[in-house]
């Protein structure tokens, strides 16, 4: 059953998939990796992003990716608002570890159930010219519904990386987790910086959601499959490292694609958690992590 073109296609589609995973994960890489906030509702926000793309695409025929980019500022404000609640209810009183976790778990659950109540459990999809097309190079397929998300995700990762390392706020966000003294010297208010960073993390969910629904149809509970993936990628990449996150996303994409091709797609949900368990057991600091 093993053949070169099967392997090559599995690797290529794994890389494309992994690139897309970076977009799904990058918000959590900021929120969990930098701020230590365990937002397990992140995939749920991505599903909301996917439904926003679906609604505007099906009513007005707008391009889903464009919708994602336009919706990002709205998500930003929603994220900032959620952080406010989180800060006042949990962080300020030192209850993040139990109540804070349960808070995001509850949010995730509410988002999923509200979507089910409004749209039901049917799969939804979007229309765009490129979705059905495939480029072929030799015997390797490059379906555009994968290639477009890969490209957008790569651009998003580069942009966030530049933002985090080049701008004042970006550096302040990194200082918030690692170096309180430096933050004070910069004269920045940690709560406002975190609020900004959390907003930024949720804003990426709008774009990631639009990419998700370009790749394939979406229903409300799809988000749960991504919880394992996003945390596995952040931990494997090393907390707080954007480059590490991107490489980890590619690794997971390729491994999942291989398992799916050679063992069957029903095994792929377990791959992320296998990677996560191995990372935690063997190298908890991840591949490129700060200690």
């Amino acid at each position: 059953m093993f053949s070169a073109d099967l392997l090559a296609n599995a690797v290529v589609s794994g890389i494309l998939l992994g690139g897309f995973y970076a977009a799904v994960t990058i918000g959590l890489a900021i929120v969990f990796g930098q701020l230590d906030i365990v937002n397990i509702a992140h995939p749920a926000f991505i599903i909301v992003g996917a439904y926003v793309a679906y609604i505007l695409n099906s009513h007005f025929g707008l391009d889903p990716v464009l919708v994602g980019i336009v919706a990002a500022p709205v998500f930003f404000f929603a994220g900032a608002l959620i952080y406010r609640v989180y800060f006042f209810a949990f962080e300020r009183t030192g209850q993040e570890s139990l109540s804070g976790l349960a808070f995001f778990f509850g949010l995730m659950f509410i988002i999923e159930v509200v979507l089910i109540l409004i749209y039901g459990v049917d799969y939804r999809l979007v229309q765009a010219d490129y979705i059905g097309q495939t480029w072929r190079v030799g015997f390797v397929d490059f379906p555009l519904r994968m290639l477009v998300p890969f490209a957008v995700s790569l651009a998003l990762t580069v942009a966030i990386h530049a933002y985090m390392s080049r701008t004042f706020i970006g550096r302040a966000i990194q200082a918030v987790a690692q170096d309180r003294v430096a933050l004070q010297l910069m004269g920045a208010d940690p709560v406002r910086i975190k609020q900004w960073a959390f907003g930024l993390g949720i804003a990426t969910a709008a774009i990631a959601g639009s990419l998700l629904i370009v790749i394939g149809p979406v229903e409300p509970s799809v988000g749960r499959q991504y919880i394992g993936r996003v945390f596995a990628i952040v931990v494997l990449g090393g907390m707080g490292s954007i480059q590490g996150m991107f490489i980890a996303a590619l690794i997971l994409g390729v491994v999942e694609s291989m398992v799916s091709t050679f063992a069957g797609p029903s095994w792929s949900p377990a791959v992320a958690f296998g990677v996560l368990a191995l990372t935690l057991a063997l190298r908890p600091a991840g591949l490129f992590g700060r200690q």
Binding site: V38, G228, P269, L276, A277
Partner: peptide
């Protein structure tokens, strides 16, 4: 503790995958 929480989620999905197969 955070990793324990995520690992429990992982366990549930891994076991579900096993049962599915």
């Amino acid at each position: 503790g955070v990793y324990f929480a995520i690992a429990t989620l992982a366990m549930a999905i891994v076991v579900e995958t096993l049962v599915n197969n």
